[in-house]
Simulated assay, not measured.
Amino acid sequence: MDARDRDEEGRARSARPRDGLGRPLPYGAPGVERQPEGVVRSPQETRREAQRLLDAGMPFHAHEVFEDAWKSGPEEAAPLWRALAQLAVGLTHAARGNAVGGARLLLRGAAGVEGLDGGPYGVDVPGLVRWARELAGRVEQGGPAVDAAREAPRLGGGLQ
């Protein structure tokens, strides 16, 4: 018998609890409640929920919110949500101490949002690009440990 947790379709789904950065914890340990998958939100609700999670130091969970928007929203919005998910995962890796992966994903996400016209859904594109490149540079240089809540980006749109 397969010891991995599976969903109804047989896909692997870990039921282990996770910490705020999405790292698996031992079964039975208290963890952070996971984001439900497949939630359809408006762009404003997506931005608001993701910002709440980023501010709480939970970029892994914010990435899941962006991923839902990317997969359930209109095709023309997918590049925005995909790039924002990459930024959130980049912050996750940086906060976990993975400098190489963190910097790469931060720079990939910055390149993804930079190519978007204007600020879709009120997202502060220039601000996010600056934030991501600055953080990637610090992480690559071996700067101090990244605190995900303190380093959380501001998505824009008057949410601050």
Rank of each mutant, 00 (worst) to 15 (best):
L135N: 07
A50F: 00
P43T: 02
R34W: 10
V39N: 09
G127R: 08
A145P: 14
N98T: 10
V89K: 14
P17R: 12
Q44K: 09
A50Y: 05
G156W: 14
G122C: 10
E49Y: 02
P24N: 14
R52F: 00
H93K: 12
D124Y: 02
L128Q: 11
V40K: 04
A12H: 04
P43L: 01
T92E: 13
R133Y: 01
E8K: 13
D7C: 11
P153L: 06
D19I: 10
G10C: 01
A3G: 02
W131N: 10
R52T: 09
G127N: 10
Y121G: 02
E76A: 12
R150P: 10
H93L: 15
P43N: 06
W131P: 12
Q86E: 13
A62H: 08
R52K: 14
L106E: 04
R16L: 15
G115P: 02
A62N: 09
R41D: 02
A69W: 02
E45A: 15
A88K: 01
E9D: 05
Y121H: 15
R150S: 15
P36G: 07
E67S: 01
W70D: 09
L105R: 12
P144H: 10
D55W: 01
G127P: 00
R23A: 12
R133T: 05
L107R: 15
G143Y: 13
P120E: 14
V113H: 06
W81Y: 11
